[in-house]
Simulated scan of single mutants.
Amino acid sequence: MIVSIANYFKHRDHPRNLIGETPKILKDFNLQFDKDIDIENSPILKGLEMFSEKGELETLINAVKNWREKIWTEK
Rank of each mutant, 00 (worst) to 15 (best):
M1R: 10
M1V: 13
M1H: 14
I2Q: 01
I2K: 09
I2L: 06
I2M: 04
I2N: 06
V3K: 13
V3H: 07
V3T: 13
S4F: 00
S4P: 01
I5F: 02
I5V: 12
A6L: 09
A6Q: 06
A6G: 12
N7Y: 13
N7A: 15
Y8P: 00
K10G: 04
R12P: 03
D13R: 10
H14G: 12
H14W: 10
P15D: 05
R16G: 11
R16N: 14
R16C: 14
R16K: 15
L18I: 05
L18N: 02
I19P: 04
I19G: 12
I19H: 10
G20A: 10
G20P: 10
E21D: 11
E21R: 14
T22W: 02
P23H: 03
P23Q: 06
P23G: 11
K24C: 10
K24V: 09
K24F: 04
I25E: 03
I25A: 02
L26H: 00
L26K: 00
L26T: 03
L26Y: 01
L26F: 00
L26D: 05
K27Y: 04
K27S: 15
N30F: 03
N30S: 11
N30G: 09
N30C: 06
L31I: 03
L31C: 08
L31F: 15
F33L: 06
D34W: 03
D34C: 06
D34P: 08
D34S: 11
K35N: 13
D36Y: 05
D36T: 09
D36N: 15
D36M: 09
I37D: 02
I37Q: 01
D38H: 11
I39C: 08
I39L: 11
E40S: 15
E40R: 12
E40W: 09
N41E: 10
S42V: 02
S42D: 07
S42K: 00
P43F: 01
P43S: 03
P43V: 04
P43H: 01
I44C: 11
I44P: 02
I44R: 08
L45P: 06
L45V: 13
L45R: 07
L45G: 05
K46R: 13
K46N: 13
K46L: 15
K46Q: 12
G47H: 02
G47P: 00
L48R: 01
L48P: 05
L48F: 02
M50F: 08
M50K: 05
M50Q: 08
F51C: 05
F51R: 03
K54P: 00
G55R: 01
G55P: 01
E56I: 11
E56Y: 09
L57Y: 12
L57Q: 06
E58A: 11
E58Q: 09
E58S: 12
T59G: 04
T59P: 00
T59S: 13
T59E: 14
T59Q: 06
T59V: 11
T59F: 12
L60S: 07
I61M: 11
I61L: 13
N62G: 15
N62P: 06
N62L: 10
N62Y: 05
V64S: 02
V64C: 08
K65A: 13
N66L: 15
W67F: 15
W67E: 08
W67Q: 09
R68N: 14
R68T: 13
R68I: 08
R68K: 09
E69C: 06
E69G: 14
K70D: 14
K70F: 15
K70T: 11
K70S: 14
K70H: 13
I71A: 12
I71R: 07
W72R: 04
E74K: 10
E74A: 15
K75D: 14
K75R: 06
